[in-house]
Computed example of a mutant assay.
Amino acid sequence: MPSKSTQATLATVAASAGVSVATVSKVLNGRSDVAPATRVLVQRLLVEHGYVHRSARPEQTATVELQVDGPLCAYSAEIVQGVMQAAAGSGAAVVVTSTEHMAGGVSWARGLIDAGRRAVITLAAEPTPAQLKVLLRAHLPVVVIDPMNVPASPVTSVGSTNFAGGMSATQHLLALGHRRIAYLGGPATAASNQARMHGYRAAMETAGVPVPAEYVRTAGFCYPHGIQEGTTLLDLPTPPTAVFAASDENALGIIQVARARGLRIAEDLSVVGFDDTQIATMTAPPLTTVRQPLREMGAVALHTALRLAAGEKVESRHIELATELVVRGSSLAV
């Protein structure tokens, strides 16, 4: 039975969130019948109040493996933070490792089973069919965040409305009067890149604006890719007046290239990013971008993984959270 201090902490969190103690309890136990925004708020307050889920004994703690592809960047750090906050509120433990370990083949999957993992979450990477077969046989569920490819049917994935986000970013630039709008994207085969690019193309086609082949560049989602492809775009005989970049880091890359050439951001070149990471507000001018609810994506992945590990059925094998255009100072009318 919880002690009075534990009950008081639950009541304090509930009062701070403006919800009932029962709702806080549902969040702690990973229940699905809580609104996403309420869940994120309660999870944050649980951490701030230092609440400890005393009913969870160490031997009962569910440990989830979180595999992160490549070095942490602004985007992945936000998602990892969301996973960790959700785990703190659910009484789960998270082990963060690099997807380089997945190269170990089937032995990697067996190692997770031997280590007592209850579920696996991967960020922008998927297990191979052979690895997946071993994991599924051991009833070890896999949840992929922002998959690079369309996941296999037994895999649950969490992402955002990339197509709608790409369309809204491009429509914003079109509404400002831009017609020479370029797309600076991530890996050509990445599912999220494909969706954002198709959203861009759909907006351009609807507006009756042709897209020159040289205006579509794909490489990666990181800052150096923005510099590399941004240089190519601004070297064109007829360079764009606006660029929709498929990540905030890509946007910062082309902003750097533009400034090195004496161009003014917004006045001479409008730039829109994607993600709305912390760096979007650190640029001068602040970056117009499409907000992905990155921390919420991490939290949803964690709770979904725990539900699957408990033998529950999920409503959908692919969960998409809504994006939102955030207009700041990096985009102006021509």
Results as ranks from 00 to 15, higher is better:
K4G: 06
S5V: 02
T12F: 04
A14F: 09
S16F: 12
G18C: 07
V19P: 13
S20M: 08
V21F: 01
A22Y: 06
L28G: 04
A37H: 12
R39F: 04
R39I: 02
V42W: 06
L45K: 13
E48C: 00
H53D: 10
S55A: 09
R57C: 01
P58V: 10
E59H: 02
Q67A: 15
D69S: 11
D69N: 12
G70L: 14
Y75A: 03
S76K: 08
E78S: 15
V80F: 08
V80Y: 04
V83Y: 01
Q85S: 02
A86D: 07
A88C: 06
A88V: 09
G89M: 02
G91D: 09
V95E: 10
T97G: 14
T97Y: 09
T99A: 14
A103G: 14
W108F: 15
D114M: 01
R117S: 13
A119G: 04
A119R: 05
L123T: 07
P127K: 10
T128R: 10
Q131A: 11
Q131Y: 07
L136S: 13
R137T: 14
V142N: 06
V142L: 09
P147W: 03
V150W: 00
S153M: 10
P154F: 08
T156K: 00
T156I: 14
S160R: 03
N162R: 09
A164S: 15
A164T: 15
G165Y: 08
G165T: 14
S168W: 10
H172S: 11
L176P: 02
R180N: 12
I181R: 00
T189R: 12
T189S: 13
N193H: 12
R196T: 07
M197P: 03
H198C: 05
G199C: 15
A202D: 15
A202L: 12
E205F: 09
A207R: 07
E214Q: 09
E214D: 14
T218W: 00
T218Y: 00
G220H: 05
G220L: 08
F221T: 08
P224T: 11
H225T: 12
E229W: 07
D235K: 06
L236Y: 09
V243S: 05
F244H: 00
N250D: 15
I254R: 04
Q256M: 10
A258Q: 13
A258V: 08
R261T: 13
G262C: 06
R264A: 13
A266E: 08
L269T: 02
S270H: 06
V271N: 13
V271F: 04
V272A: 15
G273I: 00
A280H: 02
A284D: 15
L287W: 03
L287T: 11
R295D: 03
V300K: 01
V300R: 02
H303D: 14
L306N: 12
R307I: 11
A309C: 06
A310C: 11
E320T: 13
T323G: 06
G329V: 07
S331W: 05
L332G: 08
